[in-house]
Each structure stands twice: as structure tokens, then as C-alpha cells.
Design a protein around this nucleic acid. Sequence first.
DNA 1: TATATTTTGTGATTTGTTTCACATCAATTT
DNA 2: AAATTGATGTGAAACAAATCACAAAATATA
Lengths: 227, 227
Amino acid sequence: MKQITKYIIKNSLKRIFLYRACLVRLRLMGVEKVFSYTLANETGVTSEQVRKDFSEFGIKGNKRGGYDINDLLEKMEKIFHRNKDHNLVLIGMGNLGLALSKYSKFVQRNMNIVATFDIDPFKQKQRSDIPVYSMDRLKEIVDRFRVKVAILAVPEISAQEVADKLIRHGIKGIVNFAPVLLKVPQDVIISNVNLCDELESVIYYVHKQIKVDGLKNLELLYKDMKY
Amino acid sequence: MKQITKYIIKNSLKRIFLYRACLVRLRLMGVEKVFSYTLANETGVTSEQVRKDFSEFGIKGNKRGGYDINDLLEKMEKIFHRNKDHNLVLIGMGNLGLALSKYSKFVQRNMNIVATFDIDPFKQKQRSDIPVYSMDRLKEIVDRFRVKVAILAVPEISAQEVADKLIRHGIKGIVNFAPVLLKVPQDVIISNVNLCDELESVIYYVHKQIKVDGLKNLELLYKDMKY
DNA sequence: TATATTTTGTGATTTGTTTCACATCAATTT
DNA sequence: AAATTGATGTGAAACAAATCACAAAATATA
């Protein structure tokens, strides 16, 4: 029943986010129309890739005319359910949890942390603007705000236990900052953010690069990276 | 010269990190030997995948005997340069930067943040154990500690400018938390951590899942996720 | 109105990754 | 000592993703 489900966010979806960020920036600059190669240049992919990605998500442009930025962004909003607000809970108000609770970008993108939870809610309460509750009020909050997605920033030792509780109370998606592979039912979406792994990957590639003395053998190196 | 280079950390490398975490845990439990399918079960991949990944990184076991955990971990340490210490700098002591500067897991894995930097070093100094400098001391520190990798946690507006400065002073790898695509020379490794995108991806998949009423049409859903 | 131009959208092809299938080897049993 | 068992390691096959190449459409030009 409960099993390891490792969902790796599709690369095409990641690219779509990239395009969107780029479109938002362009719109701010007053640009109204883009071509696939505009986006391609800005995001470091090929223009065919842009069009293929759009096609995958059912986004159409006008032949010769390219894409209308407003129209494009509107379509994306719809696809990513960005037209409505999303309520989140955050579990674990340690250093990282606290920082995440103050991360203003979430709000800017209609994602609201409605409550945070900690085993010691009183310790943190003063430092945060968002209410800090103890875990026994989880169900109440999740139900009241119809929360479907949680951010998990607890120590690794308690991550699985907390995840179980979240899922029992109806959470369907978790962004997990604890460096453990959570065992969850098949219908729960997990996205792991492992800070150490990110750093170690970079260190690994940097050392590899340094070893191939300077820029001599870049071709060889690139074969080892997925672009 | 300077261009967008989007390095996506290879999936096989990510899996290797997974295996390692698993091995460390098993060793702690007193286990001394593993088979490819042990690791496979624990990490949610297939045993062939484990062996192929090992083969890619030149790791060999003993036929029939499986793998000796200590031996395996030692080999991995070497491959990932974990046998020596790595000095890092962290730029941007906002909420996130502060949390990262206190993240104890880095130290546990031989990655030491030797100094942090902020445009307003005095504001943050009291809150941190690690020295907080202003950017003009960057070169001095990078040279003294032979720093090759930086963590970038500055606002997106200044991310590119700071990245340029880092690279000018010899930084070869950056873990970038700012939601912008940095333009860097080809020989610089970038790993982007985009918190909003992670959350939005999860929200996207959760909604998709909810739409296919319950668990009816899971097959269809899974086609959209890379496992 | 006809022609040329430009850009999309998508089958066909190539390239990359995962799974399959089995030869190979080492340990154990007979 | 031979036969059997159970694991690794890896080419071959299947699958997935990215690139190529070009038809179709919309606009501009003559």
C-alpha cells in the first residue's frame, strides 16, 4: 500500500515555468508579442523545444504572428490553476521553516501559507507573522482552509511520521525539505528539495571540470550533464 | 561568451546520492552488506538501474557477494570528493540566507560556509555565528579559503550582478536560489533551486490527480511523470 | 490578386535512458 | 570435484525525449 513514490517533476513542466517567468519579465518591459525563438534565446533552449512544450500543454499561437504575451500568460494561469488561491500549511518552524514562512514570493504567486506547525509552537510564535500551532490542530486547519499541499521542513527523524499524519488528514502533495525518501500512497505527490545534494552535485561537477584542465575537454564533460 | 547554461544535474547522480543516504542509514543499523535489490527496494528504483548507475560511476561489487557497505561508501566518498573539506561562501543574508547559514547538514557533510556576505553586513551580524562581510571583501575571502562554490540567496534583482562578481573572483559553481536564469560562461556550473516552481509543480500534479476522479485513471496520470 | 516571406505545428529521425535478458563469476551444496 | 544457486555486469531491445525538416498558415509585398 504505502510505497516509495519518487515523482520527478517533468522537465517540460520546469521549462514551462521558465517561459512564464520570462514572459512576465517581457510584459513588464512593455513587450506584447513573442516568437518561439525569443523565448528560446531567453531561456537557453531551442525554439522547436519551446513549440513542442507548448504543444504538449495544448498551447497554440498564430502562424507567422507568434504568440501574444497576455494571451499566453492567461492560458498558463489556467493550466497551472494560478487563477485561484492555494492554501498551504508549513510544518516545522526551525531555521528553514521560519525562512520559508517569510518567503514573500509564495504570496505573490497566490500561494498562501495559512498556518504553520511546530512541536513547540510557543518558542517560535514571536518570530513569525503567520500563526504557529501545535500539531494537534492540524486537522482543524486543513479542513477549514481546504489545504491540499504542505511544505515539510521538520528534522529528518520525524519527517516520515509527520508525512503520515498529513496524508491521514487529507494532504495530497508535499514539498519535502527533509533529506529522506518518504513512503507514501501512490496518489500523493512528493517533490524533494535536498539542499546538500544540490551543493554536492555542484561540487562534483566543478571538480570534474577543474580536472579536465581548463576548458580543453568541454565536450567530454557535457556528455555527463543533462541539458 | 557569457550565455545561459542550464545544467540539470543528471538523474543518475541524484540516484547515487539516494543510494548513499540509504547506505549510511543501513550502516548505522549495523548492516554490512547490500545487494542491488536491497538498494533498489529502499530507494524505489529497479535493481538493474542500481547496477547500471554503479557501472556508470565505475563502482564494482562482487559477483554473488553483493556490495560491502563500507567499501561502497568509501568509493563514493572518493568519487564525490567527500574525503576533503569544501569551503563555501554564501551571498545574501536575508531570511533564506540566514537559514542556510545555520543549516547544520552542510557541515556534517564537510561543506563549510567560511563567510557570508550582504550589502548591509551590520544588520545581520548579530543573528549569525558565521562572519558577515560586505561584498568588497569577497575577493580576499575567496582567495584565502580557495573557495570554488557559492550559495546565492540574494534578491532576484541583484542576482546576475552578484553572480558576475563571483565568477570574476574565481567562483566556478553556484547554487542559485534567486528565481532568475543566470547568464554565465560555459565553464561555470549552476544549480537552480526555485522554491515557487517546486510548489507550483506539486499543486499542478495534485489538481490533475484530483480531476481524474480519485484513483480511477492513474495510468494516464503516470504517463505525465518521469519516474 | 499572386508571390514571397516568416513563423507555427508536427511527423520523422536521432539521441539518450531504462529495462530486459543472459553470460559470467563466486559461493554453496551434493 | 561437479553441479547448483544467486548475484553481478553489460550488450541488446524498448522506450522516451530532443532535434530536424518541412507542410501549412498567416502576413507582407509586388
